[in-house]
């Protein structure tokens, strides 16, 4: 990993921990962005952590960009020493794979896709070496995921699967982005899964849809009363495959405001995870059984 510092115009400093994605890069980025927040450097207005990088927005009238850069660079050694361990939560997110709404949308934008003949799931399963779409879906939901970034629009989570590099699913984004994506689509691009928090443009492959709202600007949804955005970096997600009947049941409960996701508090330790992924994941998912 080699850290790269650069300016984004005169109001941003962009720090890339690594060109490629890894949990090590994520944890270093998170530790360092926390260190920047704790340092309370005059002029810092916003800190945005991302998958393997982070960005600081600042007022260059308060602190000169060169001085700001120096102050941030000084925090790198501290971030390297920080423990890669966090208390967080695991959330079970129901997913209706192969749903009719993303299917209708992906057919509408077929000419923008790498493989106009099939579906996004057919294509993703094939290029990742799976014999069937069912086996691919199984791989997508059997191991948990880690929210490594929140952003793009309105609280959209980017998720990284907690499996060995060789088991990671990788897919390209659409050749040309769509102008429409159903709200709450479960998507995939690069090595990341995502949930589209709102309807809109998008370039990720579409695998299914969740009935679980994750953004509510009116803050009326029972579990979004405290804040309008559900996910935060470090959340762990377990997809739960559901069928149409269960999708409809949950949707009705969401509308009646009586549904909330199953969650449990867990601790995630990167060293423990790297030492035994299967066992760490098993323990994470067991925490949900008691929720």
């Amino acid at each position: 990993m080699k850290t790269r510092y650069t300016f984004g115009g005169d109001e941003h400093i962009y720090v890339e921990m690594d060109e490629e994605m890894s949990l090590d890069a994520f944890f270093k980025s998170l530790s360092m962005s926390n260190a920047v927040r704790d340092a309370k450097i005059p002029g810092v207005t916003e800190i945005c952590p991302a998958n393997a990088s982070f960005q600081v927005r600042f007022d260059p009238d308060v602190t000169h960009p060169d001085e700001m850069l120096k102050r941030i660079q000084e925090l790198e050694a501290k971030a390297e020493d920080a423990e890669k361990r966090m208390t967080t939560r695991i959330v079970e997110v129901p997913v209706f794979y192969r749903d009719p709404w993303t299917h209708e949308t992906l057919m509408r934008f077929r000419e923008r896709h790498q493989d106009p003949q099939g579906t996004d799931l057919d294509y993703a399963a094939r290029i990742n070496g799976y014999d069937s779409v069912d086996a691919f879906i199984e791989a997508h939901h059997s191991a948990p995921w880690f929210v490594s970034m929140v952003g793009f629009v309105s609280g959209l989570p980017f998720l990284y699967q907690l499996v060995e590099r060789e088991k990671q699913i990788e897919v390209p984004k659409y050749v040309r982005p769509r102008t429409d994506t159903p709200k709450l689509t479960v998507g995939y691009g690069g090595c990341f899964s995502c949930v589209y928090s709102v309807r809109g443009a998008g370039g990720y492959q579409m695998f299914g849809i969740t009935p679980m709202p994750i953004y509510d600007p009116r803050q009326q949804t029972s579990y979004l009363r405290d804040f309008m955005v559900f996910f935060r970096p470090g959340d762990i997600v377990k997809w739960k495959p559901i069928d149409r009947a269960e999708y409809d049941r949950i949707t009705a409960e969401v509308e009646a405001n009586t549904w909330s996701p199953r969650t449990a508090e867990v601790t995630f330790d990167l060293a423990e995870f790297n030492a035994d992924m299967a066992d760490t994941n098993k323990k994470l998912m067991e925490a949900l059984d008691d929720a």
Binding site: G8, G9, E11, H12, Y14, E16, D18, E19, E20, M21, S22, C48, A50, N51, A52, S53, F54, Q55, R57, M149, G151, F152, F158, Y160, R165, Q168, E170, P172, K173, G189, G190, C191, F192
Partner: peptide
Amino acid sequence: QPFGAGADPSNIVDGCYSYGS
């Protein structure tokens, strides 16, 4: 292309965007 970035040479591992970028 680095792991996680996607195949197109204009792709990077998803990061933050600066205003004006």
